[in-house]
């Protein structure tokens, strides 16, 4: 159950990032947010607001320090969802 929830979160996040980046690149879990998806620190802050609304959770921006890849972000979202 938990694994299917996680996979659903990861899939939803990839879809959200597909539209957020607006490029032809197909987003995959191990892509770097900064180096491969060109999401700089300012864009990341705006992305987090959208993610909060998509998943109806609170994502503190100070929790992003260890987030490098799409999968890292999915891990964080999943952790917050399961703890709330």
């Amino acid at each position: 159950m938990a694994e299917s929830d996680y996979n659903e979160t990861l899939q939803q996040l990839c879809q959200r990032l597909d539209s957020f980046t607006g490029s032809d690149i197909k987003v995959s879990p191990d892509m770097s947010l900064v180096n491969q998806l060109a999401i700089d620190s300012i864009k990341l802050l705006n992305l987090i607001m959208e993610i909060e609304d998509t998943f109806d959770i609170s994502v503190p921006i100070n929790a992003l320090v260890d987030v490098q890849t799409v999968r890292d972000l999915a891990d964080l979202i999943h952790k917050i969802k399961t703890e709330s």
Binding site: L45, I48, M49, E52, D53, D56, I57, S58, V59, P60, I61, N62, A63
Partner: peptide, 26 residues
């Protein structure tokens, strides 16, 4: 905020409905 160590959440600029929504989630 960074110096404080508190959890930092942003609301959309001057958007009170957005602020309300984020407070509700907390």
């Amino acid at each position: 905020c960074t110096l404080s160590g508190a959890d930092v959440i942003r609301f959309r600029h001057n958007d009170v409905a957005d602020l309300d929504k984020r407070l509700r989630r907390l």
